Simulated scan of single mutants.
Amino acid sequence: MSIRHGLLALLASGTRYGAQLRTEFQARTATTWPLNVGQVYTTLGRLERDGLVVQEGVDAAGRVLYAITDAGRAELRDWYESPVDRAHPPRDELAIKLAMAVAAPEVDVRAVLEEQRRHTARALRDYARLRTDAARPATRDGIARLLVLDRLIAQAEAEARWLDGCEARLTGSFAALECP
């Protein structure tokens, strides 16, 4: 997830202070990716260092306002125009956990799969509920939230199918290992 580009996107519509960026980022992404305000200010510092944002005064409450620069707009445009790279996928903790569990004779891999399946089903229900709530006001922010929730639902559904496939593969593989 690109916090850097998310903040640039928010700043493209006007100046903001850090906590405001955090709130708007979380609202736009249906609060599915909590963002620490310290993370926002650290990222703003890097964006400022890289010439992509500048401090542009303070508001009435004394909070520092940030604005996107022309270089920041160019960076943001490049981000929008470039596909998300799949050549180096992020580490997947669940895949790593199962890969390690399969090789550990003391681990009940089926129990690990079942617990994950329950968790995935819960997440799917939660995302569906959030999607129902987000669908009510037809605003740009509402549509943004729906897009994020639709993606999370699709990922959870894919994970459930993958878990079923893992169980089928393990059942067949363990049976073959046990045969002399």
Rank of each mutant, 00 (worst) to 15 (best):
W162T: 03
L146Q: 13
E178P: 03
A134E: 02
Y66F: 15
A168R: 15
V54H: 04
A168K: 09
A144Y: 04
H5E: 15
Y66H: 08
D85M: 02
Y66E: 02
D59M: 08
Y80D: 09
V112D: 00
L44A: 02
Y66Q: 01
Q20M: 13
E115P: 05
R77I: 04
G38N: 13
L94D: 08
L130V: 04
A30V: 03
A123H: 06
D50P: 00
I68H: 01
D164M: 09
L8C: 10
L177Y: 06
R161T: 06
S2A: 11
L94K: 04
D92N: 11
A175F: 06
A71I: 07
G14W: 05
R77P: 02
R49Q: 14
R22T: 05
A138N: 14
V102N: 01
A67E: 09
Q155A: 07
T69P: 08
A74N: 11
F25W: 07
G172I: 00
R73N: 01
I96T: 15
G172A: 09
C166G: 03
C166L: 06
A154Q: 12
V53F: 05
L177F: 07
A121E: 08
P180F: 15
Q26L: 11
L10F: 12
T23G: 07
P137N: 07
A176L: 07
V64S: 09
G57F: 09
A27V: 11
V102H: 01
T23W: 03
R161E: 11
R122I: 03
T120F: 02
V107A: 00
G142F: 01
L76A: 01
Q26S: 10
Q26W: 13
T31L: 06
V53C: 14
T171C: 04
